[in-house]
Simulated assay, not measured.
Amino acid sequence: MGGEHDSLPALLRTWRKRTKVREIQGLTASGRRAECLTQRDVARLVGVSERWYGAFERGVEAAYSPVFLNRLSSLFRLSPAERQTLYLKVLGHPPAPTGSVSAGAVSEIDVQLLQQFLDNQDPAPAFATDLAWNVIAYNGALLHWFPWVSVEVNQMRWILLAPEARYQLVSWRRDWARPLLGRIRYERAHHPNNEVLIRLERDVLAGSTDVREMWELREVADSSPGRLRRLRLPCHRGREVAVRIVAMRLMYGESLYVNVLLPDPAGDEDVI
C-alpha cells in the first residue's frame, strides 16, 4: 500500500488534515483544536480504536472492510474519484457498483462530461441517478450537503429508511416519503419485470412500518420538478433552507436523470 507523495499514508494524512473539526457535528472546536481532525477523532467517529486507525494510516496491511472504507469516505467527504482511489489502494479494486437498471446506460454516456456538467452547477448541489435512484455521479456541493452519498448511494433508500432523513427533510412524510413512494409505484408499473426496481420496492417496504403504511395508500406520482421543498441539514447548522429540485432526463440515456437543487430565498422567507 506504499508509494511516495501519493502513498496511502500520505493521502490519508492530507484528507484528515483538511477535515475541520468545526465541520463535524458533535465535536467541540476551540483554538488550534479547530484546525483538523486527530487520529483519535477519526477512530472514534468511524468506530475503531485509536491504535487500529493509527496502524491503518501508517499503511499497515490488514483485512480492511468496505464498511470501514465507506465510513472513512463519508467522514473525510471524499469525492467519487478520491473514494475510488482509497478502494484501489486498500483493496485493489474500485467500490462495488450498486446495480443499475440498465447496465449499458452508464457506458453509453461520457462519464467525464457528465461529471464536468455536475461540477459546473456549483455552488448548487447536483447529482445524476439511474432509473432505480442509484446515485452514479455528484458534485462537491452535494457531498457537502449530504455526506451520506459516499456511503449509501441509493437516494430512495436513504430518504425512506435513514433515521436522520426524517429530521433533515422537513415535512418528511408529506413532501418526501409519500411522493417518492408514488414514484416507485409509477416506475414499477412501467417496468414490471425490472429486478432492480422489484428489489428496491421490497427493501424499502421491509425496512419501515411507516413506509408500509404509506404504501397501502396506493398513491401514484410522476416526477414533480420545481416543487418547493425544505431541508434542515447539519452543514446549515440546522437552519431550514428552501430548495427547488430541477430534474432533467438525459437525451442519450432514457434511464438517467440529472437533478439540481436550487436554493430559493423566497421560500426561506416563509419558514417560521
Rank of each mutant, 00 (worst) to 15 (best):
R83I: 11
G140I: 02
R229S: 00
V170Q: 07
R249N: 15
H93Q: 15
R183D: 09
I109K: 10
S171G: 04
L180E: 10
L160E: 12
E216P: 02
L180F: 13
I136M: 05
D110T: 05
W15H: 07
E35M: 05
D175S: 12
Q115T: 08
P97L: 12
V271S: 13
R51Y: 02
V246R: 13
R239I: 03
D268I: 10
G2R: 12
S65T: 14
L69F: 06
L205N: 05
R157P: 09
A189N: 15
S74W: 00
R157I: 11
T19A: 08
G2W: 04
V135M: 12
P125L: 05
W52R: 06
G47Q: 05
A55G: 02
M1I: 12
A34L: 02
V243R: 11
N139R: 10
R227D: 06
L86I: 13
S74E: 13
G99C: 10
P80E: 03
L200Y: 08
L169V: 04
V48H: 06
D210I: 11
L27P: 01
W145G: 07
V21Q: 01
G207N: 09
L45N: 06
Q155Y: 13
S65W: 04
G47F: 01
E195K: 14
V135K: 01
L205Y: 00
L261W: 15
Y64S: 02
R230T: 01
R157K: 14
L262C: 09
H191Q: 14
P263Y: 13
R13G: 02
L200I: 09
A141L: 10
I198G: 02
M251I: 12
R183Y: 07
A126P: 00
R239T: 07
Y87T: 04
N70L: 06
H236V: 02
Q112V: 03
V271Y: 11
T19W: 00
L37F: 04
F68C: 04
A55C: 03
L250Y: 05
Q115H: 08
Y167L: 11
S223L: 11
A242T: 06
D203F: 00
E187T: 12
